[in-house]
Design a protein around this nucleic acid. Structure first.
Lengths: 207, 207
DNA sequence: ACTAGTTTGTGAATGAATTCACAAGCTGCG
DNA sequence: CGCAGCTTGTGAATTCATTCACAAACTAGT
């Protein structure tokens, strides 16, 4: 398959959100123009994005909302349940355990891990906090698809190495660090500091 | 000034983080190659990024760590204190109030706002939670530079409109929604759901 | 002072993403 | 059926971002 740009995938994600909204409201069809208006892009962009994966619309009519919703879910890999583990039961880890959007989209949090004996054994929103030393052994039996990395920044790379060695192929990283992983491990970083600096840059360098 | 790509600004942010680390370790100079290796990019990219803003290095030697650190701080607008307000004192708002990286980078959280009477009047890590109805009046006196939008998704656009009308020019949005704002208001969105879907896409469509 | 060894800064070349523009296909109506 | 009115799908054109490649500038060693 031809390589798909990151920006395209992000937009598909946006389109899907609108489609779900439309579906709830019972709308039957939607045009690329409508999706573009909502998503802050252009209709040509919407059509091009979709064209990488096939041909989903009807000329003169637009896209069937339920059909396109299903297609996008399929493309984005949301058709199945994904097993997630959270590593680091601090503030961020806790906030994530609470986050309802996870479940809604088919993500099932199996366990959380920490090294702090105070925390081990407790629960985080019904999720058991386990000793990080058991991580590798646990994985043997309950192979997670995605690891959420929510440890302090200084340990992030070491933990990522451990995650990768254990065979987990996707990591969502919340540490504000540039991490390096093998090619077959997908890493996405959510970095608030970086976004904030994007804002201060914009505020400082307007015209 | 020539328009600077978003991707460039993000990388500057990354370089700055490494420079701060180098500075702490007392290193005097650094080469574009070293920065590139750490930042997961190429030395040409580093030099090109910096070249948009001037000429900071010495041929044959590299960049003076303290000088480049200062220059990047200046470029990213981190030379001053920024006044921040948090809107929405839920899980995310609370996590943000706790976040130490804020203060470290010169961001001062002045207040948090909520509409829930249970929460109004309480404190969030030393920050007062105020009634959202006072938002506009407060702004008159204590003009914030940045508003952090941490309300439920369904109210995000309405609150953003209110923020923009009140004259705040930068918003960090945590609601998983595509928001629309006037051109002179910079909006950055931190959207975990989107990153997660980037991962499931990668897991689903490898090769 | 010269040479060997580095590393920057930047036009030019390449590559990637977006936008344009229009033929092709669908619907509904007279 | 045939025409008017839409809207898709997609090559081609354009714009934007990254990489190449090399002259210029610096250091250190002799």
């Amino acid at each position: 398959m031809k390589r798909i740009a990151d920006s395209t995938v992000r937009r598909l994600s946006i389109y899907l959100r609108f489609l779900e909204e439309f579906e709830e409201r019972g709308l039957a069809t939607v045009s690329s123009d409508e999706l573009a208006r909502r998503g802050g892009t252009t209709s040509a962009q919407v059509r091009k994005d979709l064209s990488f994966f096939g041909s989903f619309g009807k000329r003169g009519l637009g896209y069937s909302v339920p059909e396109l919703t299903t297609a996008l879910r399929e493309i984005l890999g949301l058709g199945k349940e994904w097993r997630v583990v959270i590593i680091g039961a601090g503030k961020i880890g806790a906030a994530l355990a609470h986050y309802r959007g996870f479940r809604q989209r088919g993500f099932v949090i199996g366990a959380a891990y920490d090294v702090n004996p105070e925390k081990i054994g407790r629960q985080l929103e019904g999720i058991e906090i386990r000793d990080m030393s058991r991580f590798e052994a646990d994985i043997e039996t309950n192979r997670p698809d995605i690891a959420v990395l929510a440890t302090p920044t200084e340990h992030a790379q070491a933990v990522l190495d451990r995650i990768a060695r254990a065979g987990v192929k996707a990591v969502l990283n919340f540490a504000p660090a540039q991490l390096h992983a093998p090619n077959d491990v997908a890493v996405k970083t959510v970095n608030m500091a970086m976004e904030l600096e994007g804002l201060t840059f914009a505020l400082t360098n307007r015209e």
